[in-house]
Amino acid sequence: METVKKQETKQPMQGPEKPQKKVESISPWKEAYWQLRKNKLAIVGLCIVLFFILIAALAPFITTHTVSGMNAADRLTGPSSDYWFGTDYSGRDIFTRIVYGAQISLIVGFFAVTGAMFFGSLLGIVAGYYGRWVDMLISRVFDIMLAFPSILLAIAIVAMLGPSLQNALIAIAIINIPIFGRLVRSKVISIRQEEYILAAKAQGMKSSRILIHHVLPNSTAPIIVQATLGFGVAILEAAALGFLGLGAQAPTPEWGRMLSDSRQYIQSAPWTVLFPGLSIMLVVLGFNMIGDGLRDALDPKMKS
């Protein structure tokens, strides 16, 4: 019952094109969807990301070589009909490695963002809803984590846990927790003042129920925007750690790792460096474009 009430109070007025029937109105999500569809950049971004998801999913079907199939005779050959993106220093097909690298980047991005989103939202909600010393404690921890340049904190974490793709993923998830946490906390604090929360409280609803049924659904918009933008950042961070030798290790076709392994051949075989870098840039660009579009669609106040 309260849910209906809440929806109505949060509802922006509909445009004049359709006369309103009864009290019914389009959900803010549907409106955001319409907004997003009009945003060309966001659509382009979506296409880029879908493209990468598609090639990652269809990897075995679209590649003709094996990921680590070395072929000394064909080392450092330029792009050709046999090797679309050329070969690297041990004669491996770069196109195949980039396609499989897409799997790695997307998986790392997904789990890092999901992890950060889950723990960040949890801490943010707890801090924002309970306030007082709980808020003090959690907020200070966030402040401290944000006091480190993010990649540096990731490096510190990997320095402790040891370099590997899995540890890089954990590190990236951890450094992104305070970003989600702060966002959710501030949203929760503003929601806490709303009348429908007071109403729910007055009806004797339990805190946990209020949090799950009222506070969380109303904080989803900024979380989704941040998650989309964070996806791109996580992929960049994973590539940076891979590049520094602190993420994925040698034969893994991770894009950052491929860059650092090939950098000494940049002059004789520029394609070895060009394509992995372009892939990182494109996929991150895709996520950034969607994120920007979503922000404009979901949060009209932040529109520029």
């Binding site: 950052g256 060009l274 950034n288």
Partner: peptide, 21 residues
């Protein structure tokens, strides 16, 4: 927009290749 999405280590490598080498 492209600048924000660029891995700086890659940009650095490309600059080195073009402008230095």
């Amino acid at each position: 927009l492209v600048g924000v999405s660029m891995p700086i280590f890659w940009l650095g490598l490309m600059q080195q290749w073009v402008f230095a080498q």
